[in-house]
Design a binder for these strands. Structure first.
Lengths: 141, 141
DNA sequence: ATTTTATCCTATAGATGTAATAGGATAATC
DNA sequence: GATTATCCTATTACATCTATAGGATAAAAT
């Protein structure tokens, strides 16, 4: 399941992508427009800033804005930051690998074999989509 | 994340697929061979029996066995029974559809647009894999 | 300078779901 | 009738996710 955090984070990024690049948008505006609990969104945007997706400005006229062009924001990196591993099980994860306690040999494991394929198919989707690809209109102005 | 239930269930099915079709295998044997907590496995196998994947026999010489040939057991149905929805969000689920409270229009939702693609790619993997495809050797005897 | 505005940051409460176990009932074999 | 193994319900323990609280910091307006 996709967490609410990821869902809200993606929607916020998508909303910011429809506004002018570099122009701060307030949390309250995003929250009300996308029906996201404001305080929860606050913590999500904070983490997106700390991971290099957003810039921010404090005080009146402040808010969050995209640092890069939507076409340069890959879904792989967004998902990894918000949701964590793309793989459904750590033993097939590229960025979050962990061995299974119960599995003596990954090469003969049926679950491993299946989940490698699922990971690769999800990866190919995330890799071919940027933020620009999943929003509707290019610029709202 | 793949739940332990799904992981264990898949491993158990894979193990049964390497034994003779229709020949009962005891929970204890599967559990020890696959390093699965026995009582937990018990409840998983029970649910796989109730959903038509396994047959069972009580008493001495009893156990669980596959009802169908491994090549006729599709991963789509196994995953849906063990894990639930294949989609990462209910609004793109074929079998477990649910509308998002916060989303006024699915057609213009960026998350929806992305998750449709992820669902389809996962589905195509699960559809092209049967239990026979993900095990190593055909029959152990 | 002071007030206002809005982000920054940590901590924490509450809700939900998962993993695992307990304990006995049922049925088949020996 | 004793033994074996599945059947079934309930419940505990734990982790994670969702959301909020409350104040600190910084920038702009007055």
């Amino acid at each position: 399941m996709l967490s609410k955090k990821t869902k809200y984070g993606l929607k916020a990024l998508a909303y910011l992508a429809t506004t002018e690049l570099g122009e701060p948008v307030q949390i309250a505006e995003i929250a009300s427009h996308e029906n996201i609990p404001q305080k929860f969104l606050e913590s999500i945007l904070l983490s997106l800033r700390k991971t290099g997706f957003l810039g921010s400005k404090k005080g009146k006229g402040g808010g969050y804005y995209l640092i890069k062009d939507p076409s340069e924001i890959q879904m792989t990196s967004v998902i990894r930051v918000l949701e964590g591993p793309i793989a459904m099980i750590p033993c097939v994860s590229l960025n979050f690998y962990e061995k299974c306690d119960d599995c003596p040999d990954e090469n003969t494991c049926a679950v491993h074999r299946l989940m490698i394929q699922v990971r690769d198919s999800a990866l190919s989707v995330y890799r071919k989509n940027t933020l620009a690809d999943i929003i509707e209109a290019p610029i709202k102005s």
